[in-house]
Amino acid sequence: MQGVVKVNSALNMRSGPGSNYGVIGTLRNNDKVEIIKEVDGWYEIRFNGKVGSASKSYITIVN
């Protein structure tokens, strides 16, 4: 499943599904990500070869 980031500035990509996990990357508006699965309001995603988590509130699913 594919998604597109929708933010005003930037979205942190984290090492796990929650804001208490470390930041491993930064996503910008309109970045395209691969959604692997949903976990507690977060998506596990793949972006630029990295796997991490980002809040699903800022990612829109595209077909």
Rank of each mutant, 00 (worst) to 15 (best):
M1N: 08
M1R: 12
M1W: 12
M1K: 12
M1S: 10
Q2F: 14
Q2M: 15
Q2D: 08
Q2I: 15
G3L: 05
G3N: 01
G3I: 05
G3Y: 04
V4P: 01
V4I: 13
V4K: 06
V4F: 07
V4G: 01
V5Q: 01
V5H: 01
V5A: 03
V5L: 03
V5W: 00
V5N: 01
K6T: 11
V7K: 10
V7F: 06
N8D: 14
N8L: 12
N8Y: 12
N8Q: 12
N8G: 12
N8W: 12
S9F: 14
S9P: 06
S9A: 11
S9Q: 12
S9C: 15
S9K: 13
S9I: 12
A10I: 15
A10F: 15
A10H: 14
A10W: 15
A10Y: 15
L11T: 11
L11Y: 07
L11H: 06
N12M: 14
N12T: 13
N12A: 15
N12G: 11
N12S: 14
M13E: 04
R14P: 06
R14L: 14
R14W: 11
R14Q: 08
R14D: 05
R14K: 06
R14C: 11
S15M: 07
S15G: 08
S15E: 12
S15F: 06
G16T: 03
G16R: 02
G16H: 04
P17E: 04
P17F: 05
P17W: 03
P17H: 05
P17N: 07
P17C: 10
G18C: 08
G18S: 07
S19H: 14
S19M: 15
S19N: 14
S19E: 15
S19Y: 15
S19R: 13
N20R: 10
N20F: 10
N20D: 12
N20C: 13
Y21F: 12
Y21I: 02
Y21N: 04
Y21G: 06
Y21A: 04
Y21S: 04
G22S: 14
G22P: 15
G22R: 13
G22E: 15
G22C: 14
V23G: 00
V23L: 05
V23F: 05
V23Q: 04
I24C: 07
G25F: 10
G25E: 11
G25D: 12
G25V: 07
G25T: 10
G25A: 13
G25R: 02
T26N: 06
T26E: 09
T26S: 09
T26H: 10
T26V: 14
L27R: 01
L27D: 01
L27N: 00
R28F: 12
R28G: 07
R28P: 02
R28H: 14
N29W: 07
N29D: 09
N29E: 07
N29V: 06
N29Y: 09
N29T: 08
N29H: 09
N30G: 15
N30P: 03
N30I: 03
N30H: 09
N30D: 10
N30S: 06
D31M: 05
D31Y: 05
D31K: 03
D31T: 08
D31R: 01
D31Q: 07
D31A: 08
K32A: 10
K32N: 09
K32S: 09
K32R: 13
V33C: 04
V33K: 00
V33W: 02
V33E: 01
E34Q: 11
E34D: 11
E34Y: 11
E34I: 11
E34M: 10
E34S: 07
I35S: 00
I35G: 00
I35T: 00
I35W: 01
I35R: 00
I36S: 03
I36A: 02
I36R: 04
I36P: 01
K37S: 13
K37N: 12
K37I: 08
E38D: 07
E38F: 05
E38I: 07
E38H: 04
E38S: 06
E38M: 07
E38A: 06
E38W: 07
E38L: 07
V39N: 08
V39L: 10
D40R: 09
D40I: 04
D40S: 08
D40N: 13
G41S: 06
G41V: 05
G41L: 06
G41Y: 05
G41F: 05
G41K: 04
W42P: 00
W42A: 01
W42K: 01
W42T: 01
W42L: 01
Y43Q: 00
Y43L: 06
Y43W: 05
Y43D: 00
Y43C: 03
E44Q: 11
E44K: 07
E44D: 05
E44M: 15
E44H: 08
E44T: 12
I45S: 00
I45M: 03
R46G: 03
R46Q: 08
R46H: 08
R46K: 12
R46N: 09
R46L: 12
F47T: 03
F47K: 03
N48T: 04
N48Y: 06
N48Q: 13
N48R: 11
G49W: 03
G49L: 05
G49V: 04
K50H: 09
K50R: 11
K50C: 10
K50M: 14
K50I: 14
K50F: 10
V51S: 08
V51D: 05
V51G: 05
V51M: 09
V51R: 09
G52D: 02
G52Q: 02
G52Y: 04
G52F: 03
G52K: 00
G52I: 03
S53E: 03
S53C: 15
S53R: 04
A54V: 15
A54Y: 02
A54G: 03
A54E: 02
A54W: 03
A54D: 02
S55Q: 15
S55E: 15
S55H: 14
K56S: 11
K56T: 10
K56F: 05
K56E: 04
S57F: 14
S57N: 13
S57H: 14
S57C: 14
S57M: 14
S57Q: 15
S57L: 14
S57I: 14
S57W: 13
Y58F: 13
Y58T: 06
Y58L: 06
Y58A: 11
Y58S: 10
Y58P: 02
Y58V: 07
Y58R: 06
Y58Q: 08
Y58N: 11
I59C: 04
I59A: 00
I59F: 05
I59Q: 00
I59H: 01
I59R: 00
I59W: 01
T60M: 14
T60P: 05
T60A: 11
T60W: 13
T60E: 13
T60S: 12
I61W: 04
V62R: 05
V62C: 13
V62Q: 09
V62A: 09
V62F: 09
V62I: 13
V62N: 08
V62K: 06
V62G: 07
N63L: 11
N63T: 12
N63Q: 12
